Deep mutational scan, measured.
Amino acid sequence: DRHTIHIGDITIHLEGFSEEELKLAEELIKRGIHLEEVKRILEELYR
């Protein structure tokens, strides 16, 4: 499954994450956390 996060003019595609995980990812990215770090956090929390 493919999910999309929109932040301003930026569109990020993250596959294989639930709606809850994507909301967390979006919040972290909006707070300035680097995408690679966001992915690592999600994997630690949900895998």
Rank of each mutant, 00 (worst) to 15 (best):
Asp1Arg: 05
Arg2Glu: 14
Thr4Asn: 08
Thr4Phe: 00
Thr4Cys: 13
Thr4Lys: 10
Ile5Gly: 11
Ile5Asn: 04
Ile5Leu: 01
Ile5Met: 01
His6Trp: 00
His6Thr: 14
His6Gln: 15
His6Glu: 10
His6Ala: 14
His6Val: 14
Ile7Thr: 06
Ile7Trp: 05
Gly8Glu: 07
Gly8Tyr: 01
Gly8Leu: 05
Asp9Met: 07
Asp9Ser: 10
Asp9Cys: 08
Asp9Asn: 10
Asp9His: 10
Ile10Ala: 07
Ile10Asn: 10
Ile10His: 11
Ile10Gln: 11
Ile10Ser: 07
Thr11Ser: 11
Thr11Glu: 10
Thr11Lys: 10
His13Trp: 08
Leu14Glu: 01
Leu14Arg: 02
Glu15Asp: 13
Glu15Lys: 12
Glu15Arg: 05
Gly16Asn: 07
Gly16Tyr: 08
Gly16Pro: 04
Gly16Trp: 12
Phe17Arg: 05
Phe17Ile: 13
Phe17Pro: 04
Phe17Thr: 05
Ser18Thr: 14
Ser18Ala: 13
Ser18Arg: 13
Ser18Trp: 13
Ser18Pro: 05
Ser18Asp: 11
Glu19His: 13
Glu19Gln: 13
Glu19Lys: 10
Glu19Met: 09
Glu19Phe: 12
Glu19Asn: 13
Glu20Ile: 09
Glu20Trp: 05
Glu20Ser: 12
Glu20Leu: 11
Glu21Gly: 15
Glu21Asn: 07
Glu21Gln: 12
Glu21Pro: 13
Glu21Tyr: 15
Leu22His: 09
Lys23Trp: 10
Lys23Leu: 08
Lys23Asn: 06
Lys23Arg: 14
Lys23Gln: 12
Lys23Phe: 07
Lys23Ser: 10
Leu24Gly: 03
Leu24Asp: 02
Leu24Val: 14
Ala25His: 02
Ala25Trp: 04
Glu26Cys: 09
Glu26Asp: 11
Glu26Met: 11
Glu27Leu: 06
Glu27His: 12
Leu28Met: 13
Leu28Lys: 01
Leu28Ile: 05
Ile29Lys: 01
Ile29Pro: 00
Ile29Gly: 02
Ile29Met: 06
Lys30Phe: 06
Arg31Asn: 11
Gly32Gln: 03
Ile33Val: 12
Ile33His: 08
His34Val: 12
His34Pro: 15
His34Ile: 06
His34Cys: 08
His34Arg: 08
Glu36Tyr: 02
Glu36Thr: 08
Glu37Tyr: 04
Glu37Gln: 08
Glu37Phe: 05
Glu37Ala: 07
Glu37His: 04
Val38Asn: 00
Val38Glu: 00
Lys39Asp: 01
Lys39Cys: 09
Lys39Trp: 13
Arg40Tyr: 02
Arg40Gln: 07
Arg40Cys: 01
Arg40Met: 06
Ile41Ala: 05
Ile41Ser: 01
Ile41Tyr: 05
Ile41Thr: 02
Ile41Leu: 09
Ile41Asp: 00
Leu42Pro: 00
Leu42Glu: 00
Leu42Phe: 02
Leu42Ser: 00
Glu43Pro: 00
Glu43Asp: 11
Glu44Pro: 01
Glu44Gln: 02
Glu44Cys: 09
Glu44Tyr: 03
Leu45Asp: 15
Leu45Pro: 00
Leu45Lys: 03
Tyr46Val: 15
Tyr46Asp: 15
Tyr46Asn: 15
Tyr46Gln: 15
Tyr46Ser: 15
Tyr46His: 15
Arg47Leu: 15
Arg47Asp: 15
Arg47Pro: 15
